[in-house]
Amino acid sequence: MKSSITPGGGGIAVRRAVARDAKRLTRLVRGSRAYEGPYAAMVAGYRVGPDYIEAHEVFVAVDTDDPAGRVLGFYSLVLVPPELDLLFVADGTQGRGIGRLLVEHMKAEARAAGLDRVRVVSHPPAEGFYRKVGALLTGTASANPPAVAWDRPELEFLIV
């Protein structure tokens, strides 16, 4: 499935991630301002490798006006058990509808895969975003030190 929006005059398309995207996705995760301060330990050594991209449903939002296809965000859908494992939007492009576009794309992919729900264990500051785009709060995932020293909201997208 290919999706696109054109907020602010720029074109955005969603495409399947490929192995050569791995370094860009890793940089996006590690450089996210959402993981500064006490959250930094969670992503300090995080790596989105080519093997991860091949094993899961990973899609990127790219700037279609950029000849290099600049990555604006991405998500990863794990099919078994169904979970939105990662969703990141580049810091400078947040608020343009990219996150919403990626969630809608993920839901369409989940539907096509025959899933009826997708779990999300959210970074605490992202809970409001997930609820705004339709996820329902189902509980709390307990801290898992040393990398995750805080409880996290657990949510679920119902796929209809």
Rank of each mutant, 00 (worst) to 15 (best):
A135R: 06
S122H: 01
L136C: 06
H123L: 02
A135Q: 09
K107V: 00
P124Y: 12
D116A: 12
G139P: 09
M106W: 13
G128R: 14
G134Q: 03
P125G: 12
A113W: 02
A126Y: 09
D116C: 06
L136A: 15
E127I: 11
G139F: 11
F129M: 05
G128L: 06
P124N: 09
A126S: 14
F129E: 12
R119M: 10
V120D: 12
G139C: 07
A108W: 08
A141S: 06
H105C: 06
V121R: 10
K107F: 05
V120L: 10
R119D: 11
R117K: 10
T140G: 11
H105P: 04
F129Y: 14
S122V: 03
V120Q: 07
K132V: 01
K132N: 12
A113N: 04
E109N: 04
G139I: 11
G134N: 04
G128E: 13
S122E: 02
V118K: 09
A135E: 11
A108I: 03
F129W: 15
V133N: 01
V118A: 14
R119N: 11
S122F: 06
A113I: 03
V133H: 03
D116S: 13
G114E: 10
G114C: 02
G114Y: 15
A112M: 06
A112W: 10
A112Q: 05
H105K: 05
